[in-house]
Write a protein that binds this DNA or RNA. Structure first.
Lengths: 147, 147
DNA sequence: GCCCCTTTTTAGACAGAGCTAAATATTTAT
DNA sequence: ATAAATATTTAGCTCTGTCTAAAAAGGGGC
């Protein structure tokens, strides 16, 4: 049957996410933007684009702008979503600093599955809508609940 | 200077962890045990051992048992620790089922840094020593606090 | 002591993802 | 309009980490 859609690698997810974000920020995306953002060589982008085009997640003619397909945009949004939920959880619930939170989210976004993501979202919500007091991180004490 | 200790890869961390656990369980570890546990070919283990020996994390003479160096044991314990904390957090705090928790922990253990790990530990402790009531996951409702 | 079975290692291939250098397009500025 | 600057692609290399097949080592039973 060969409908075997190989699972998207962490690397390709990163490229896809970058393309999505660059388009969101600048209206269009070229190779160089992606290379700069990811800190890789331009040729690595060309290379990754081949993989993404092959999987029908990206549309791209040589030397032209980079565009996402419907499916590509869907997947990209999903990665971004995972990234945001994780960052949020780390900063809001665990009181971790932005930089550390983002760094970890960047790697975890390729790993975390639906079930855990759902629970993290629920936990953030629970934490936010604290009708039962607030839990905060206190240096030297750990997490503390204030009524 | 070349004292450049390259960061241990996720893959090598997995091998190291397996060696540690097999030794803990059976008293000794051979190639085959590791291959079976990780579900890889025997030759992949031989290969990985080269990397671990080179980094002085493992002692190994051809055809002989596999042993950890002091440093190797330290690193292995650290990986196992991260694994356990993560699994714990997922099952205890997020009420995720064992299998899903373990699967995610297996990947995250190679990623999560000290700061976040510390916070997770604190959160587990906070959750456990609930002198302020208990927070539990309720299907269809999310997390709920019981006084 | 020797044969057979299992384990381990070697050898060689391959895929993924990165790099540099060189070739080729495109864009911009004079 | 063309030369210079910039961007993109190609070609070829490297490193990990995996695999399979074949060779070599070890261990037991008899």
């Amino acid at each position: 049957m060969e409908t075997m859609t190989t699972e998207l690698s962490a690397s390709l997810e990163d490229y896809l996410e970058s393309i999505f974000l660059v388009i969101a920020e600048r209206g269009e995306a070229r190779s160089k933007d992606i290379a700069d953002r990811l800190g890789v060589a331009a040729s690595s982008v060309t290379n990754a684009l081949r993989g993404l085009v092959k999987r029908d997640l990206v549309r791209h003619e040589p030397y032209d702008l980079i565009a996402l397909t419907e499916e590509g945009e869907r997947v990209a949004r999903d990665v971004v979503h995972r990234h945001e939920v994780l960052t949020h959880f780390f900063t809001e619930v665990l009181s971790v600093d932005e930089k550390t939170a983002t760094a970890c989210a960047c790697k975890m976004e390729h790993i975390v599955g639906d079930v855990i993501l759902e629970r993290l979202i629920a936990y953030i919500e629970y934490d936010r809508s604290s009708g039962n007091g607030k839990t905060t991180w206190v240096e030297g004490k750990g997490f503390v609940h204030h009524a």
